[in-house]
Structure formats: C-alpha cells, structure tokens
C-alpha cells in the first residue's frame, strides 16, 4: 500500500518532520504501507538539502520506501495512486481528495495566522469525512494512522452543480 503526504505550495516543517519520524514511519509500516511519497515543499527538515534543486530522492526506513521531492505541477497522479493521503488543510486539496474519494488525514498548519483552515478540517472531521489531527507531536499523527478505520468514513457529497445554477437562474429571472 502507498501513502502520500502533501504540504501545499509553501512549507510545513512540523508535518514533514513528523512523517520522517520513526513513530510515524512505524505506524505506516504496521498498517501495511510499504511506500511513502512526500511532497515536502520548502520545508526545513533533515534531508531537505538533498532535494534543494528539485531532485527526487528515495530512502529506506523501517521497511518503508520513502520517496520525497519539493513540488510537481499537478498532484492528481499521486492522489490517484495513493491508498492514504496525509495533507495540509488547504480547501482545494481537501475537495480534490475527498471527491476521488481517498482516505484523508488532515493536519492544519498552526503557523498560519488565519485559523480558518483548522475550522474546516475539524468540521469535516466531525462529519466523518476525514480525520483531523496535529503534527506538533509525532505521537498524534502516528496514533491517527494506527487507529484510522477506513470503513467508518462517511462519503463526501458529490459535486452538485444544479444547486448553484438554480439559484442564479432564479435571481436572473430565468425561473
């Protein structure tokens, strides 16, 4: 099985350092993951120098093959291939992953000034569409991975374009 981690267009040191920690790698290996792909962005972490010029690197840790790189123009292929996505709380990424659908663990970035990302993650978590956790303590993320029961995910509603079209048609006098 394959897990994919994404930090978005900037950096998220706490998340990247967490996923490279022994606790998190072990929890993944325990759940049967043999491959981990990390989109690390401009985050600062132990192996950041190896990918500073846009390279893609691979290392082996606790029986898990870890591939990591900074950015790719589109993450769609990675989402498609993954059995689990661990992501920052960007609303675009959340929509993309939930609509596929793929199991999703969201880690809000506490260093962002506006905390509405956390609101969104927690609310969608409360509705059962995803798991929201923190990366400040590696233990939290590891525990979330260990206990995430994919069968309990509440399916996210599909895109229903008719609602907005009706609102606008009504406002503009077509209905």
């Amino acid at each position: 099985m394959r897990a994919f981690v994404t930090v978005g267009s900037t950096k998220f040191d706490a998340l990247v350092n967490s996923v490279f920690s022994e606790a998190v790698i072990l929890s993944l290996s325990q759940r049967g993951y043999t491959k981990l792909v990390v989109q690390c962005g401009n985050s600062t972490f132990e192996f950041a120098d190896f990918v500073a010029n846009g390279e893609s690197q691979v290392l082996e840790k606790e029986g898990v093959e870890v591939e990591y790189w900074k950015f790719k123009p589109s993450l769609q292929e990675e989402f498609d291939k993954a059995d689990l996505v661990i992501s920052h709380a960007g609303s675009g990424t959340i929509l993309d992953v939930l609509r596929l659908p793929k199991p999703l663990i969201v880690v809000p970035n506490p260093t962002l000034l506006d905390n509405h990302q956390e609101e969104l993650a927690t609310s969608l978590g409360d509705l059962g569409h995803l798991k929201a956790t923190t990366a400040v303590l590696c233990r939290d993320l590891a525990k979330t991975i260990e206990t995430f029961d994919v069968s309990t995910i509440v399916p996210f509603p599909p895109f229903d374009g008719s609602k907005f079209a009706r609102i606008v048609d009504e406002e503009m006098g077509f209905i």
Binding site: L95, H116, E119, L120, S123, I167, E171
Partner: peptide
C-alpha cells in the same frame, strides 16, 4: 451575488463581512 468560500465554517471572511449588507444575494 457573493458566495462565501467553502473553507469558511464558523467565521465569515473579511470580504464576506464587508459585502454582506451590500450584495443582492
């Protein structure tokens, strides 16, 4: 017509608060 972002759950954005009294919908 103003549509607040899906990312806003508990608190309106600044533009949402500013435009709320001004827009038709």
């Amino acid at each position: 017509i103003y549509i607040e972002s899906f990312a806003r759950v508990k608190k309106l954005s600044l533009s949402g608060r500013l435009l709320r009294p001004l827009v038709d919908k």
